[in-house]
Design a protein around this nucleic acid. Structure first.
Length: 276
DNA sequence: CTGGTCTCCTGATCGC
DNA sequence: TGCGATCAGGAGACCA
């Protein structure tokens, strides 16, 4: 389940593999996973002919930026992967659920693989003003959120703080795992209404978000069930989860049993004793 | 403005 | 061994 740290790891892997390469050929086997095609099922090129200049990320949104203003947005959803298959590689290649693929000028192939198909490719409209078009509706990136920014984003809201953290329009990049982990690190109860948070608590939350997300990026992300980066590497941050997936187990800080509830349609785990 | 529910989708897991 | 039920959830649509 790629959230910000996993997407950032994918971005870095991809950057090393495809920046500077020209896309020679592509095939979109499932046009229905792609938004913005001029004609559904038509021959609208995604990246064909472009030289890749950069791989960008904002929140969970990836953008492959090509020359001449060409851009392709990639959202991995729940199970999406961008697999890099080097020319001489013997990496196992999926035989099913490959919805798009690209061939680069050094023989590398790039595959968009997504069993559950919650992921999307997005082609921007003609004359879109650059990569920022893809995150025009997203909040600030959670990896660099400042206390002042977060305070402004949460100000006055009556929502539960976890629901706000999961809302990509408020803050971009946090999903269910890191919302629970950051709230635990900040000692805040997920059900707390935003408007009841004191400035010091919001500041604690902003620092916790940045620390947890940065640590997770350093650990290669969390591999829960299926996630692996574009080169097949798995993350190790799941070993350091302190609440996610630990409902009923003792809190690592105080030993109380962790409580599991449903909040914003998500399984939510917290410590009733140390999260207030 | 909110929260709740449903939808999309498949694979893993579990009880029988 | 197999089979149906359940769960996982990012995000948008929709309703109350």
């Amino acid at each position: 389940m790629p959230e910000l740290p996993e997407v950032e790891c994918v971005r870095r892997t991809l950057e090393r593999a495809i920046v500077g390469r020209r896309v020679l050929a592509e095939s979109l086997r499932r046009p229905d996973i792609c938004d913005g095609l001029a004609r559904p099922g038509g021959a609208s090129p995604l990246l064909r002919g472009a030289v890749v200049l950069a791989v960008l990320r904002h929140g969970k949104q990836l953008v492959i930026q090509g020359d001449a203003g060409r851009c392709l947005g990639v959202h991995l959803g729940m199970t999406g992967r961008l697999l890099v298959l080097p020319p001489a590689g013997d990496a196992p290649e999926p035989r099913t659920h490959v919805h798009a693929c690209w061939r680069l000028d050094d023989g590398t192939r790039l595959l968009f693989h997504d069993p559950r198909r919650f992921g999307r490719l997005t082609l921007p409209p003609p004359r879109a003003p650059g990569p920022a078009w893809f995150w025009r509706a997203l909040g600030p990136d959670a990896l660099t959120i400042t206390p002042a920014d977060l305070r402004a984003r949460l100000a006055g809201s009556r929502r539960a703080v976890k629901a706000a953290l999961l809302d990509q329009h408020v803050l971009a990049g946090v999903g269910n795992i890191y919302a629970d982990e950051a709230l635990f690190a900040a000692r805040l109860r997920p059900t707390r209404r935003c408007k009841t948070l004191r400035p010091a608590e919001v500041a604690r939350l902003a620092r916790a978000l940045r620390r947890v997300l940065a640590d997770a990026v350093r650990a290669g992300g969390s591999t829960v069930r299926t996630y692996a980066s574009s080169d097949g590497s798995r993350g190790t941050y799941q070993r350091r989860h302190r609440v996610y997936g630990r409902g009923g187990l003792p809190c690592v800080r105080c030993g109380s049993p962790l409580r599991r509830i449903h909040l914003a349609q998500r399984s939510t785990v917290f410590c009733p004793a140390c999260q207030r």
